[in-house]
């Protein structure tokens, strides 16, 4: 006598499609926390110096930036902040995309956009900090308008 045939249980559609066993997510998680701790100091310091000390927000102009970046201390500070904040932020946005973008294609497109924005912004920002000229001169050899007072004195 043949045994009655049973329908297979419906477990197959739910199998986790890929299991990627690497430490990638662990390092990503760890980076978020470590960079976050450093960023708290860097960003709050940045905000304090730019918005609370001196003339606050109304004191912001080219001269203010030039004055800061004339010192290697602030160059390093802003460079570290740029890199850490951009990677921290991009990784955060990557997590959000992973959570809410449903289709594979959407995920790939959005993550590519974030990566492009990350690379572009970090490269641009780094170049600006390293090639910054606090007292730029025009083709005629005179200082451009708006240079800080310490250039002319």
């Amino acid at each position: 006598m043949a045994a009655p045939s049973l329908e297979a249980p419906r477990s197959t559609p739910y199998r986790r499609s890929t299991s990627r066993r690497s430490n990638y997510e662990m390092y990503s998680w760890l980076f978020m926390r470590l960079s976050g701790a450093v960023l708290v100091v860097l960003v709050i310091g940045h905000l304090f110096v730019n918005l609370m000390v001196g003339d606050g927000i109304s004191g912001l102009d080219f001269g203010f930036v030039a004055g800061k970046w004339a010192s290697p201390f602030w160059q390093v500070w802003d460079l570290a902040m740029l890199w850490l904040a951009m990677i921290h932020g991009s990784n955060g946005v990557r997590t959000i995309i992973n959570d809410y973008a449903q289709r594979d294609m959407t995920r790939i497109v959005l993550k590519t956009l974030v990566l492009v924005a990350l690379v572009f912004t970090v490269v641009l920002g780094t170049l600006v900090i390293f090639t910054f000229e606090p007292c730029p001169v025009g083709p005629d050899g005179a200082f451009l308008e708006g240079v800080p007072s310490f250039c002319t004195s």
């Binding site: 080219f62 930036v65 959000i96 912004t121 600006v128 240079v147």
Partner: peptide, 24 residues
């Protein structure tokens, strides 16, 4: 998310210091 979007704009506008003091 808000801070990330701001950060992109902030780096772009600060980059103007490299163009010309007047532009910034």
């Amino acid at each position: 998310l808000l801070i990330f979007v701001f950060l992109l704009v902030h780096v772009l506008d600060t980059s103007l210091v490299r163009v010309a003091p007047e532009a910034y």
